[in-house]
């Protein structure tokens, strides 16, 4: 299994700890630049929408958050499955580190959507398929985190929460396709719409910058959080004591 050596090497905590540390600024700096640029382009440069006026600008935060909340859950479920099947502790650490990030994105998505919904739809909240399935996603994240905290033993927490993460992943395609499967209040896709984006370039480019910026921001946050997870899990390991020795002395 020579092809798997890189994978096993990556899965070794000291190795990953170092790589994640080096990677963090390379993700965080472009993320910050893209988000600042995207937000400036979206909130200042882009024209107002013909129907919604300036209220449409919430899309620059709402849509990337929604996208990240789904992507984070998918990654969390994949990491949990890898951890469960191959017994890789680092994969469980990645899943555990992703959950609060994804939960935050899901919350931001719901909150901004609600703020937009009141003036545009005429309601803060409706039990529509898209809205309800997104709320379930937030609860899945919260349930995952609560389940982890219910165990004192880290290994048991890893395995039990991994099953929940895997079971919950069926909700991801439901959220994505809900606006096409059922009559819903929420509109369909704009950016990946069939026949091209339903948005002119001066609105679309800042939105894409926000999408990539948010995605890189997730990468940077993940690196920082996984390093934290590794520190907790390996607190008695020899390599960590060596690493900490010069500073302690």
């Amino acid at each position: 299994m020579a092809t798997w050596t890189w994978f096993h090497k990556l899965a070794s905590p000291p190795h990953f700890y170092r790589i994640a540390g080096t990677l963090t600024p390379w993700l965080a700096i472009p993320a910050a630049l893209l988000i600042v640029g995207g937000v400036y382009g979206g909130l200042v440069r882009a024209p107002a929408d013909y129907q919604q006026g300036d209220a449409f600008r919430i899309v620059y935060v709402h849509a990337p958050s929604a996208w990240l909340s789904l992507m984070c859950y998918t990654y969390m479920a994949i990491a949990a499955a890898v951890g469960l099947i191959w017994r890789i502790k680092l994969a469980h650490a990645v899943a555990a580190a992703t959950a609060p990030i994804g939960a935050s994105f899901a919350f931001v998505c719901l909150a901004t959507g609600s703020l937009w919904g009141k003036p545009m739809w005429g309601t803060w909240w409706e039990w529509d398929a898209r809205l309800t399935s997104q709320l379930i996603l937030l609860f899945l994240y919260l349930g995952y985190m609560a389940l982890r905290n219910a165990f004192d033993d880290l290994q048991r927490a890893d395995r039990a929460s991994a099953v929940l993460a895997i079971v919950g992943v069926v909700n991801v395609p439901i959220i994505h396709f809900s606006v096409y499967w059922w009559n819903s209040l929420h509109q369909g896709r704009t950016v990946l719409k069939e026949g091209g984006p339903g948005m002119p370039p001066e609105m679309l480019i800042p939105l894409l910058m926000c999408f990539f910026g948010f995605t890189l921001m997730y990468g940077a946050l993940l690196c920082v959080r996984v390093r934290g997870e590794v520190l907790i899990r390996e607190r008695n390991a020899a390599w960590l004591k060596q690493l900490g020795a010069p500073r302690a002395a």
């Binding site: 107002a48 929408d49 129907q51 309601t123 209040l185 704009t190 339903g198 609105m203």
Partner: peptide, 18 residues
């Protein structure tokens, strides 16, 4: 007893819409 507006997935500046 309640009327909500449904928005579509298209965004455009007012002059383009016109």
């Amino acid at each position: 007893d309640e009327v909500l507006a449904k928005h579509d997935e298209n965004y455009m500046p007012p002059e383009v819409a016109k």
